[in-house]
Design a binder for these strands. Sequence first.
DNA 1: TGAATTTTATGATTTGAATCATAAGGCATT
DNA 2: AATGCCTTATGATTCAAATCATAAAATTCA
Lengths: 202, 202
Amino acid sequence: MVASMIEESLLITYGAKIKKYKKNEYVFKEGQKARYYYQVSSGEVKMNNFLENGKEFVQSFFNAPRSFGEPPLFSDILYPANAVATKDSEILQLEKTTFLNLLRENPDIHLKVTQAIALRLYYKAIMATEISSQEPEHCILRVLDYLKKDVYGLSGPFSFKVNLTRQQIAHLTGLRVETVIRATKSLEKKNELLIKNRKLYR
Amino acid sequence: MVASMIEESLLITYGAKIKKYKKNEYVFKEGQKARYYYQVSSGEVKMNNFLENGKEFVQSFFNAPRSFGEPPLFSDILYPANAVATKDSEILQLEKTTFLNLLRENPDIHLKVTQAIALRLYYKAIMATEISSQEPEHCILRVLDYLKKDVYGLSGPFSFKVNLTRQQIAHLTGLRVETVIRATKSLEKKNELLIKNRKLYR
DNA sequence: TGAATTTTATGATTTGAATCATAAGGCATT
DNA sequence: AATGCCTTATGATTCAAATCATAAAATTCA
């Protein structure tokens, strides 16, 4: 179910370079022009925004072998968010024009890229609905279910060990930590979540 | 700036049919499997969800010549929202497999489709941030600016006559009508909006 | 190992959008 | 022209999440 992205060897063939990023280092920033196609080789990247009030909103996390930041490569738009390494990471980067050539010359890969973007749009559509719904518990379950099913391909009850802190869930949902803590407890009571020494299972 | 979609003549060549929908008629419903590629020929379609409490959330409006509902054609996912004609409309529909063939045989068009999806993802990312921000005024301005710039390609101040009711804006932002009414008035005072006999200009 | 930071936790208070109530102005339909 | 529906409008009230405060547990890291 994880949209497997472009083979690293193929990217290298086309001249992609592996860049190393330290934890908390920026890959790109909101408002910049897109110059490269990025694909996580190791580590983890998050895309985020900082709101007026200084609060962080996390669009999504990206692990190997997922790509990120493609949309502005296709349209004449600027990055709508920052990309930051959340761990020491290695990221493949390929020049925009070379990337577009790669797609032109490899229709199957183009289709995979489209698939990956389509899946992210699907996720965003769901999250927009949930965030607008003003129902914290439901909203949290949706993020977790999305990760469980669409990202990690799991299905059994409580088979998904959530590797996110309450704070990270808060950033993904636009809620506050305290609200997430209280909501997850309430969800445990309702048997929607399992909490085993502080870790969430869904 | 409006991503021009696939030429109608080409779609017809590939066997697309024009279907007529009455106002308020459903094109597809949440949870269904995707069977067709859809492109508005005339009229207007909206995609929406109904929340637990019966409230409507509108993902987006689609006018000619925009396509909608593609993401589930690429992945093994179900429609995350309903598609409803908001006016009497004519909509081109093309079988999923034929559509995918069309893309394979026409790389330039595949690229255009990818562009259109990428642009929608960009919009969703921005809206998710805004909706999460809990700042109604800012959120409203963002929807309007998106429509003004990215959909209609306008740029002068107050050059965009907003053809949405306060209620429609509410549905797009997840706010309540009363909040939108109060927020737009406040925005007029701050010179961010113009209100000329009840119509909004941005 | 110990210090510093982050995470989880919980209670009290505030706040602002939702909700409720009501009404007038527009618009479409007959 | 009359009817009814939708939109805009505004004030009063409610309510739930944000905020504030505080602290213990866990993790990171020097």
